[in-house]
Protein backbone atom coordinates (compact mmCIF):
# COMPACT_ATOMS: atom_id res chain seq x y z
CA UNK A 1 0.00 0.00 0.00
CA UNK A 2 2.75 2.33 1.06
CA UNK A 3 4.68 1.52 -2.10
CA UNK A 4 1.77 2.35 -4.33
CA UNK A 5 1.09 5.55 -2.48
CA UNK A 6 4.67 6.72 -2.94
CA UNK A 7 4.67 5.78 -6.57
CA UNK A 8 1.51 7.67 -7.28
CA UNK A 9 2.92 10.69 -5.52
CA UNK A 10 6.02 10.53 -7.68
CA UNK A 11 3.88 10.17 -10.74
CA UNK A 12 1.96 13.19 -9.64
CA UNK A 13 5.15 15.19 -9.49
CA UNK A 14 6.15 14.10 -12.94
CA UNK A 15 2.75 14.80 -14.43
CA UNK A 16 2.77 18.24 -12.81
CA UNK A 17 5.67 19.75 -14.77
CA UNK A 18 8.33 21.47 -12.74
CA UNK A 19 8.25 25.12 -13.74
CA UNK A 20 11.12 25.77 -16.10
CA UNK A 21 13.40 28.62 -15.08
CA UNK A 22 13.29 30.18 -18.52
CA UNK A 23 10.73 29.23 -21.08
CA UNK A 24 10.21 30.51 -24.59
CA UNK A 25 7.02 29.42 -26.30
CA UNK A 26 6.16 29.71 -29.99
CA UNK A 27 8.46 32.65 -30.64
CA UNK A 28 8.31 34.07 -34.16
CA UNK A 29 10.34 36.99 -35.38
CA UNK A 30 10.62 38.64 -38.78
CA UNK A 31 12.68 41.60 -39.92
CA UNK A 32 10.51 43.14 -42.61
CA UNK A 33 9.50 40.22 -44.82
CA UNK A 34 12.48 38.09 -43.77
CA UNK A 35 11.40 35.54 -41.17
CA UNK A 36 14.20 34.79 -38.74
CA UNK A 37 12.51 32.70 -36.06
CA UNK A 38 9.63 30.30 -36.70
CA UNK A 39 7.66 29.15 -33.66
CA UNK A 40 10.67 28.48 -31.51
CA UNK A 41 10.11 26.96 -28.07
CA UNK A 42 12.84 26.37 -25.56
CA UNK A 43 12.89 25.65 -21.83
CA UNK A 44 15.97 26.03 -19.68
CA UNK A 45 16.27 24.76 -16.13
CA UNK A 46 17.96 26.60 -13.30
CA UNK A 47 21.69 25.96 -13.35
CA UNK A 48 21.60 24.52 -16.83
CA UNK A 49 24.07 25.47 -19.56
CA UNK A 50 22.60 25.31 -23.05
CA UNK A 51 24.74 25.93 -26.12
CA UNK A 52 23.01 27.18 -29.23
CA UNK A 53 24.77 26.25 -32.45
CA UNK A 54 23.97 26.67 -36.11
CA UNK A 55 25.13 28.36 -39.30
CA UNK A 56 25.40 32.14 -39.36
CA UNK A 57 22.07 33.64 -40.28
CA UNK A 58 20.20 30.70 -38.82
CA UNK A 59 18.57 32.92 -36.19
CA UNK A 60 20.47 31.79 -33.10
CA UNK A 61 21.66 35.27 -32.09
CA UNK A 62 18.19 36.69 -32.64
CA UNK A 63 16.79 33.98 -30.40
CA UNK A 64 19.16 35.07 -27.64
CA UNK A 65 18.37 38.74 -28.13
CA UNK A 66 14.64 38.11 -27.83
CA UNK A 67 15.15 36.92 -24.25
CA UNK A 68 16.23 40.33 -22.92
CA UNK A 69 14.09 42.18 -25.45
CA UNK A 70 16.90 43.66 -27.52
CA UNK A 71 14.67 42.25 -30.25
CA UNK A 72 10.93 42.01 -29.82
CA UNK A 73 9.36 39.06 -31.64
CA UNK A 74 5.98 39.50 -33.31
CA UNK A 75 4.48 36.62 -31.34
CA UNK A 76 5.24 34.11 -28.65
CA UNK A 77 5.70 34.13 -24.89
CA UNK A 78 8.60 34.42 -22.52
CA UNK A 79 8.51 33.19 -18.98
CA UNK A 80 11.42 34.01 -16.72
CA UNK A 81 11.41 33.72 -12.94
CA UNK A 82 7.97 34.90 -11.85
CA UNK A 83 7.32 36.94 -14.95
CA UNK A 84 5.45 36.13 -18.15
CA UNK A 85 5.72 38.36 -21.17
CA UNK A 86 3.48 38.12 -24.21
CA UNK A 87 5.60 39.44 -27.06
CA UNK A 88 2.58 40.48 -29.11
CA UNK A 89 1.56 42.74 -26.22
CA UNK A 90 5.01 44.31 -26.19
CA UNK A 91 4.85 45.00 -29.93
CA UNK A 92 1.32 46.31 -29.77
CA UNK A 93 0.67 48.00 -26.44
CA UNK A 94 4.22 49.02 -25.61
CA UNK A 95 5.33 47.42 -22.41
CA UNK A 96 6.27 49.88 -19.68
CA UNK A 97 9.92 50.92 -19.60
CA UNK A 98 10.18 49.83 -15.99
CA UNK A 99 9.25 46.28 -16.91
CA UNK A 100 11.97 46.10 -19.56
CA UNK A 101 14.46 47.32 -17.01
CA UNK A 102 13.42 44.83 -14.31
CA UNK A 103 13.71 41.91 -16.73
CA UNK A 104 17.09 43.06 -18.03
CA UNK A 105 18.52 43.61 -14.56
CA UNK A 106 18.20 39.89 -13.91
CA UNK A 107 19.67 38.84 -17.25
CA UNK A 108 23.34 39.45 -18.00
CA UNK A 109 24.45 39.65 -21.60
CA UNK A 110 27.89 39.46 -23.15
CA UNK A 111 28.39 40.47 -26.77
CA UNK A 112 30.74 39.46 -29.55
CA UNK A 113 32.20 42.98 -29.73
CA UNK A 114 32.59 43.46 -25.92
CA UNK A 115 30.81 46.85 -26.05
CA UNK A 116 32.62 48.21 -23.02
CA UNK A 117 31.99 51.90 -22.42
CA UNK A 118 35.21 53.56 -23.57
CA UNK A 119 34.76 56.76 -21.56
CA UNK A 120 34.82 54.86 -18.27
CA UNK A 121 37.59 52.89 -16.61
CA UNK A 122 37.20 49.20 -15.88
CA UNK A 123 35.94 50.15 -12.42
CA UNK A 124 33.47 52.58 -13.99
CA UNK A 125 32.17 49.92 -16.37
CA UNK A 126 31.66 47.36 -13.62
CA UNK A 127 30.09 49.73 -11.06
CA UNK A 128 27.89 51.66 -13.51
CA UNK A 129 24.97 49.20 -13.48
CA UNK A 130 24.98 48.54 -9.72
CA UNK A 131 25.13 52.29 -8.93
CA UNK A 132 22.88 53.75 -11.61
CA UNK A 133 20.41 50.92 -12.11
CA UNK A 134 20.34 49.04 -8.80
CA UNK A 135 20.99 52.11 -6.66
CA UNK A 136 23.92 50.69 -4.69
CA UNK A 137 26.13 53.25 -2.99
CA UNK A 138 29.67 53.78 -4.30
CA UNK A 139 31.53 51.88 -1.59
CA UNK A 140 29.27 48.87 -1.91
CA UNK A 141 29.55 48.90 -5.70
CA UNK A 142 33.32 49.30 -5.49
CA UNK A 143 33.60 46.33 -3.16
CA UNK A 144 31.46 44.29 -5.52
CA UNK A 145 33.56 45.36 -8.51
CA UNK A 146 36.80 44.48 -6.74
CA UNK A 147 35.53 41.03 -5.80
CA UNK A 148 34.28 40.28 -9.31
CA UNK A 149 37.40 41.57 -11.02
CA UNK A 150 39.46 39.35 -8.73
CA UNK A 151 37.31 36.44 -9.81
CA UNK A 152 37.89 37.14 -13.52
CA UNK A 153 41.59 37.70 -12.83
CA UNK A 154 41.78 41.39 -13.61
CA UNK A 155 42.25 43.01 -10.20
CA UNK A 156 45.31 44.92 -11.38
CA UNK A 157 43.37 46.43 -14.30
CA UNK A 158 40.66 48.03 -12.20
CA UNK A 159 41.74 51.58 -13.02
CA UNK A 160 42.72 50.88 -16.63
CA UNK A 161 40.83 52.22 -19.64
CA UNK A 162 39.13 49.63 -21.84
CA UNK A 163 41.10 50.80 -24.88
CA UNK A 164 44.36 49.75 -23.25
CA UNK A 165 43.26 46.14 -22.66
CA UNK A 166 43.62 43.12 -24.92
CA UNK A 167 40.51 41.63 -26.48
CA UNK A 168 40.46 38.77 -24.02
CA UNK A 169 40.78 41.15 -21.08
CA UNK A 170 38.03 43.39 -22.46
CA UNK A 171 35.72 40.43 -22.81
CA UNK A 172 36.43 39.33 -19.25
CA UNK A 173 35.61 42.87 -18.08
CA UNK A 174 32.38 42.65 -20.05
CA UNK A 175 31.55 39.42 -18.24
CA UNK A 176 32.42 41.08 -14.91
CA UNK A 177 30.17 44.01 -15.80
CA UNK A 178 27.27 41.63 -16.39
CA UNK A 179 28.00 39.62 -13.22
CA UNK A 180 28.07 42.79 -11.09
CA UNK A 181 24.30 42.97 -11.56
CA UNK A 182 24.02 39.50 -9.88
CA UNK A 183 22.00 38.12 -12.79
CA UNK A 184 19.98 34.94 -12.58
CA UNK A 185 20.73 34.12 -16.21
CA UNK A 186 23.66 34.87 -18.47
CA UNK A 187 23.41 35.19 -22.24
CA UNK A 188 26.59 34.83 -24.30
CA UNK A 189 26.38 35.90 -27.93
CA UNK A 190 29.39 34.51 -29.84
CA UNK A 191 31.65 36.03 -27.23
CA UNK A 192 34.88 34.54 -28.57
CA UNK A 193 34.29 35.20 -32.29
CA UNK A 194 36.04 38.58 -32.29
CA UNK A 195 39.03 37.40 -30.28
CA UNK A 196 42.51 36.53 -31.45
CA UNK A 197 42.91 32.75 -31.20
CA UNK A 198 45.33 32.92 -28.27
CA UNK A 199 42.76 34.80 -26.18
CA UNK A 200 39.83 32.48 -26.73
CA UNK A 201 40.97 30.13 -23.98
CA UNK A 202 40.96 32.65 -21.13
CA UNK A 203 37.36 33.64 -21.91
CA UNK A 204 36.14 30.06 -22.30
CA UNK A 205 37.87 29.10 -19.04
CA UNK A 206 36.00 31.85 -17.25
CA UNK A 207 32.72 30.72 -18.76
CA UNK A 208 33.43 27.15 -17.68
CA UNK A 209 34.13 28.39 -14.17
CA UNK A 210 30.75 30.17 -14.15
CA UNK A 211 29.03 27.04 -15.38
CA UNK A 212 30.70 25.00 -12.64
CA UNK A 213 29.42 27.47 -10.06
CA UNK A 214 25.89 26.79 -11.19
CA UNK A 215 25.14 29.83 -13.32
CA UNK A 216 22.29 29.34 -15.76
CA UNK A 217 23.74 30.08 -19.17
CA UNK A 218 22.54 30.28 -22.74
CA UNK A 219 25.53 30.33 -25.05
CA UNK A 220 25.44 31.03 -28.77
CA UNK A 221 28.78 29.70 -29.93
CA UNK A 222 30.95 28.30 -32.69
CA UNK A 223 33.24 26.69 -30.11
CA UNK A 224 32.26 23.06 -30.50
CA UNK A 225 34.66 21.99 -27.75
CA UNK A 226 32.91 24.26 -25.28
CA UNK A 227 29.48 23.17 -26.46
CA UNK A 228 30.39 19.52 -26.04
CA UNK A 229 32.26 19.61 -22.76
CA UNK A 230 30.75 22.45 -20.77
CA UNK A 231 27.10 22.59 -21.76
CA UNK A 232 24.44 20.23 -20.53
CA UNK A 233 22.43 20.44 -23.71
CA UNK A 234 22.99 21.65 -27.24
CA UNK A 235 20.32 23.22 -29.41
CA UNK A 236 20.89 23.22 -33.16
CA UNK A 237 19.14 26.08 -34.93
CA UNK A 238 18.43 25.73 -38.61
CA UNK A 239 16.46 28.21 -40.71
CA UNK A 240 14.77 29.83 -37.75
CA UNK A 241 13.79 26.61 -35.99
CA UNK A 242 15.36 24.52 -33.27
CA UNK A 243 15.94 21.54 -35.52
CA UNK A 244 17.29 19.38 -32.74
CA UNK A 245 18.01 19.69 -29.05
CA UNK A 246 19.52 17.13 -26.75
CA UNK A 247 22.24 16.23 -24.26
CA UNK A 248 25.57 17.63 -25.38
CA UNK A 249 27.39 14.31 -25.77
CA UNK A 250 24.59 12.71 -27.74
CA UNK A 251 24.19 15.74 -30.01
CA UNK A 252 27.86 15.73 -30.88
CA UNK A 253 28.34 11.98 -31.11
CA UNK A 254 25.05 10.86 -32.59
CA UNK A 255 22.89 13.67 -33.93
CA UNK A 256 19.55 12.46 -35.22
CA UNK A 257 18.63 15.28 -37.56
CA UNK A 258 20.36 15.11 -40.96
CA UNK A 259 20.80 18.90 -40.93
CA UNK A 260 22.59 18.70 -37.58
CA UNK A 261 24.82 15.98 -38.95
CA UNK A 262 25.62 18.03 -42.05
CA UNK A 263 26.41 21.13 -39.96
CA UNK A 264 28.62 19.26 -37.50
CA UNK A 265 30.45 17.53 -40.34
CA UNK A 266 31.18 20.91 -41.83
CA UNK A 267 32.38 22.68 -38.70
CA UNK A 268 34.24 19.78 -37.13
CA UNK A 269 36.18 18.89 -40.24
CA UNK A 270 37.19 22.42 -40.95
CA UNK A 271 38.62 23.23 -37.55
Amino acid sequence: MQEIYLTSERQGQIADPVMAFLELTDVSKAFGDRTVLRNVSLAVEKGEVVSVIGASGSGKSTLLRCINLLEVPQSGRLRFLDRTIDYAEVTRGRMRQASYAVLRQRIGMVFQSFNLWPHMTVRGNVTEGPVQVLGLDRTEADARAEAILAKVGLSEKIDAWPGTLSGGQQQRVAIARALAMRPALMLFDEVTSALDPEMVGEVLDLMKQLADEGMTMLVVTHEMGFARHVSDRIAFVHEGRIAEIGPAEQMMAAPRNPETRRFLDRVLHHT
Partner: peptide
Amino acid sequence: KGQWESARAIGMAPALLMRRIILPQ
Protein backbone atom coordinates in the same frame (compact mmCIF):
# COMPACT_ATOMS: atom_id res chain seq x y z
CA LYS B 1 25.03 50.25 -31.89
CA GLY B 2 26.73 48.01 -29.34
CA GLN B 3 27.07 50.91 -26.92
CA TRP B 4 23.31 51.35 -26.76
CA GLU B 5 22.73 47.61 -26.56
CA SER B 6 25.13 46.95 -23.70
CA ALA B 7 23.53 49.80 -21.74
CA ARG B 8 20.02 48.52 -22.44
CA ALA B 9 21.05 44.98 -21.57
CA ILE B 10 22.14 46.12 -18.13
CA GLY B 11 18.69 47.59 -17.50
CA MET B 12 19.19 51.28 -18.19
CA ALA B 13 16.10 53.29 -19.10
CA PRO B 14 16.45 55.53 -22.19
CA ALA B 15 17.09 58.78 -20.31
CA LEU B 16 19.77 57.24 -18.10
CA LEU B 17 21.39 55.50 -21.07
CA MET B 18 21.52 58.77 -22.98
CA ARG B 19 22.92 60.73 -20.04
CA ARG B 20 25.49 58.24 -18.79
CA ILE B 21 26.59 56.28 -21.85
CA ILE B 22 25.77 58.02 -25.12
CA LEU B 23 26.04 61.78 -24.58
CA PRO B 24 29.40 61.67 -22.79
CA GLN B 25 30.80 59.92 -25.87
